[in-house]
Structures are given as structure tokens and as C-alpha cells.
Simulated assay, not measured.
Amino acid sequence: MKLLVRADASVEIGMGHRVRCQALIHAFNQFGWQCQFVVDRRYQAFASPEDCFIGGQSEKGFTEKECKVEFLSLAEQADLVILDHYGYSAEDITVLHQHQPNLLVLDDMNDRGDFPAKWLLNPLLQGYSKQIEFPLTGSRYALLRPAFQKLELNQILPQQLLITLGGTDPLTLTLPILNALLASGFPTKDIQVLLGANAKNADQVIGFCHHNSIAVEQGLADVTYLMKQAKMAISAAGGTLFELACMGVPTIFAQVADNQTRSLEQHVPLDWCRSIRFDNVPEEVRQQRIEQLVEVINRCWLDIEWQENARKTARGLVDGDGANRVAKTINSYFAAS
């Protein structure tokens, strides 16, 4: 059985789409599926050589329309297509579904209007039209990497503040947050920085950390051991939100993209996390937000009762088995056909 995954990654797009689709690919591989990413050639620097690249080059450069048209013929040759791409409108998805009815759409915001799909996956509780045959919604379908399955959590209370602003840190928040933490008197020995492999300003952040004796790691394939050591975290609110929930890490989320809005609207009221928004303010206002974030961290760092309740709540939300759950559901459909 052949599975194609249409997803891109870049500094602007982030790495979240690719990471969660990699979790799905790993799960489908266990059922013997042949899986491959289909990637816009513009983003091949963030892809793998094994990926299928689409999109020609004209005098005006690459066009999304070229990619979409080219992908239709590829989709027809597959048994299943997974689409994780905000560049596809409801109309685009409708056309794709006409070429490949066995379509799984990954969604976050539920803001594209109605469109048809065999399956739709959203780790948030959202309502969709009857054009979706099999909706897979809620945190039990959160797509986490294999390392998050069947974890044994530390019995000793962790003591680190984990700072991780996504695969690319698109707003370059890590360094100013570190500066603000140090200015507030937060102990450097309690800070652990985790940078994505493609994080912006990585060299400056690593240099700052070494100069100030702050622990720093970059591009780790398995981040679970750092999350196990985290008493709290400062994090972007993409797919890492569900990873931190699974690990039971109380978190202050820095919202760095609009598509993180719905997840924060659902998770912040559960009181295992807080959030401060950065993506909708001009750069000169971000420093004020950073100082606000550091104030919240310093206050919550001492609130042991809140941390204990937050850990219990978060762990009850995500079990780490979402990718396997999705793959098993869809594979069973094909097995019964």
C-alpha cells in the first residue's frame, strides 16, 4: 500500500507539519505501508533526499499552483494521501478529494470552511461538516513521535526550566528571553535551552549560553529526557504543546503563529499552562511581552501547588499513542475493504 504525505517545512512554515507527519509515517510503516513525503522544491533544504519534489521553475519563480496541479497526478497513483498544508483552501482540498477520495486532512484552526475528506484529524475538539466521513478529533489523536509512547516518568521532582521555541524559533525569542531571565535573577544553573536544528540565531544563542554557563542542546532526535528533567517550560505552542502535556510539564507558552490560537484557547482554561502572544504585535512591543512572560515564570516557579495540579491535568490529556491510533484505524478500513 502506498501513502503520500503532502507537507512542507521552512523557517516561515516551521517544522511542526513535518514532525507530526513523520510520527504518522512511522506508525504506518509498522503496518507495511510504503510512505513518502511530497515537498515543494522551494523547501528542499528542510527535506530529505528520499522525498518526492514537485514544482517547476519559471521566469517568475515557483508557484503554488504548479505544485498543486502536479501533485494531483501523484495523488491518483497512491492508495492514501495525507495533507498537512495550510496553503490548501477548501476549494483546493475539494479538487484533491476528487482525484483521491482516500484523503486524510490534518487541521488545526478549522477556518477554511467546509470541504470533503475520508478522514480529518484535529487534536482539538472541533466540529466539522458531514462532508468529513470519519472525523478524528481530540487530544487522543495528537501526533507524537515514537519516543513519547509508554514513557516512564521520573519519580524525583525535576528542577530545570526548559526553553524551547520550536524547530526554527521564527521570531528569534530565545535570546531576549534568556537576557530577561538573567536580568530578573533567575538562576542560570536551572535553565536548559533546546534549539531546533534550523533555529534562527542559533550560533548567538549557543555562544550566550556557553558564556553564561547555561545548558544548551540543538537538533536532538529524542527530546524526552530533557522534558523529564523539566520542572516547567517556556515553549512555542505548536506540536510541542502536546508533547509537554504528555510529559506533564507545566508550561508558559509563547504564541508565535496564528494557527496556535485554537489549541491555546482550549488548553489554557484547563490550567496546566499559561500563554502570552507574540505573533500579532510589532517587534518593538515584543520586549514588553517578554518581560511579562518572565514575570509569570518567576511567579509560577514558586507555586508548587499549581505545578502539582498542572502536571496531573496535563498527563491526563495526551497518552502519546495518537499516531498509532490513527494508523490502526485507517489500516483497518483498508483491510476490511
Rank of each mutant, 00 (worst) to 15 (best):
I191V: 15
R145A: 10
L151F: 02
Y88M: 14
Q98V: 11
Q255K: 06
D92W: 13
L171W: 03
E308I: 15
A7I: 03
E291G: 05
G113P: 14
K312P: 09
I132D: 02
I304G: 06
I13M: 02
L194F: 09
L175Q: 06
K130N: 13
D258S: 10
Q131W: 10
E133Q: 14
Q126M: 15
E133S: 15
A237K: 01
V5M: 14
T137L: 07
T224I: 06
C300W: 12
H210T: 12
A7T: 07
P101R: 04
L161W: 01
W33P: 00
Q307G: 03
G238E: 09
L83P: 00
P176L: 04
T137G: 06
I234S: 11
G16N: 00
M109R: 15
P158L: 02
D51I: 00
Y86K: 07
E59A: 12
D84H: 00
N110Y: 01
R112L: 13
P146E: 11
A314V: 04
W306R: 05
L143R: 03
F186S: 02
T63Y: 10
F278I: 04
I252M: 12
R145F: 10
G196W: 04
V5Q: 02
V11A: 14
P158W: 09
S73P: 06
A215P: 05
D303H: 05
R311E: 11
H97A: 15
R20G: 00
E217T: 09
I304A: 14
D279E: 13
H267S: 12
L80Y: 02
R112Q: 06
S275K: 03
A90R: 12
L136P: 03
K150S: 10
G248C: 04
C21D: 10
Q192W: 09
H26W: 10
V318E: 01
R325L: 12
D169W: 01
I234G: 09
L173E: 00
I82H: 08
